[in-house]
């Protein structure tokens, strides 16, 4: 599905990892503009490594990565790809206001000798209002709640005017009220026409928005298909305790996976 030159992200037989060892391998996928893709999978499955590989933050061992049709090594238009890392806290060592952190999202669009311009300020304000933090712009980020800090990170990515937003676990450790706000923020971004790739544990929060689901397990893509198909087959596809579907592990007819307990350490197991 969605192959061709119009793809914003294209992987062919790609393998990513750290140091000596790939964590995910044989990844072939193509993401078209406007898709909202959820990457699911248990802890240590390699789903974070997959998105980090796409972003160039993990080592690439094999295959090809093309961003907006350009091979990863030659890709220079970094602002087109906004990244929201998985972080529980923002730097608490020095003071930094919400605006100051979000403004760093403009740096990739600024020249070395350029000053922070009115255009930059407009995009920072716009990003803050998209995530619902326009009223906190002068607050020290360290004083915000975890969910609010997560939205600051989203705003930072948005400030760079990305066409694709890559988010790593935006809801992890966020309370229910803030998860709700995050889902609203995401709906606003989808309405803006952004292509979104979100690594998550909790599909429920974004269930209405996601158009496509990719399940990563044990370093391989286990499922890749439209969200409705995933919903029909989710009990076959998921078998990890994160999803509370132990009871249905053995019912998968196609794409059979060998059931095993996630408590058993696996080779290549790695956080994220």
């Amino acid at each position: 599905m969605n192959t061709g030159p119009s793809a914003v992200i294209e992987l062919a037989d790609a393998a990513f990892g750290y140091g000596e060892r790939p964590v995910v391998s044989d990844v072939t996928l193509s993401i078209a503009p406007g898709e909202v893709v959820a990457v699911l999978g248990p802890n240590g499955s390699g789903k974070s490594t997959l998105v980090k590989g796409i972003l160039g933050l993990a080592d690439q061992f094999a295959g090809q990565v093309r961003l907006f049709g350009v091979p990863r090594a030659e890709f220079r238009e970094h602002p087109r790809l906004g990244y929201v890392p998985q972080r529980h806290t923002l730097s608490g060592t020095v003071r930094a206001t919400v605006t100051e952190v979000v403004a760093t999202g403009r740096l990739s669009r600024q020249r070395w000798f350029g000053r922070f311009s009115g255009t930059d300020a407009t995009h920072v304000e716009r990003a803050l209002s998209l995530v619902g933090l326009a009223d906190r712009e002068r607050v020290d980020v360290a004083d915000l709640s975890g969910g609010q800090q997560r939205r600051v990170l989203i705003a930072r990515a948005l400030a760079g005017e990305p066409e694709v937003l890559v988010m790593d676990e935006p809801t992890a450790g966020v309370d229910a009220a803030n998860q709700h706000v995050l889902a609203e923020v995401l709906a606003r971004l989808v309405a803006e026409g952004l292509t979104i790739l979100v690594v998550t544990h909790e599909l429920a929060a974004f269930a209405d928005l996601v158009t496509r689901v990719i399940v990563v397990d044990n370093g391989h893509i286990q499922f890749d298909g439209p969200a409705p198909e995933f919903n029909d087959r989710r009990q076959d596809v998921l078998h990890d305790h994160d999803f509370h579907h132990h009871d249905h592990e053995l019912t998968a007819p196609a794409r059979q996976v060998v059931p095993r307990s996630v408590e058993v350490p696996r080779p290549g197991r790695r956080r994220g």
């Binding site: 160039g56 990244y83 923002l90 930094a96 760093t104 740096l107 990739s108």
Partner: peptide
């Protein structure tokens, strides 16, 4: 004067800074 916000960005979140091409 030239580098302060880039140094700030790298010091506060190196991974993000790298993804942004700094």
């Amino acid at each position: 004067a030239l580098l302060r916000w880039r140094l700030f960005a790298v010091a506060s979140d190196e991974e993000y800074a790298r993804s942004a091409g700094l």
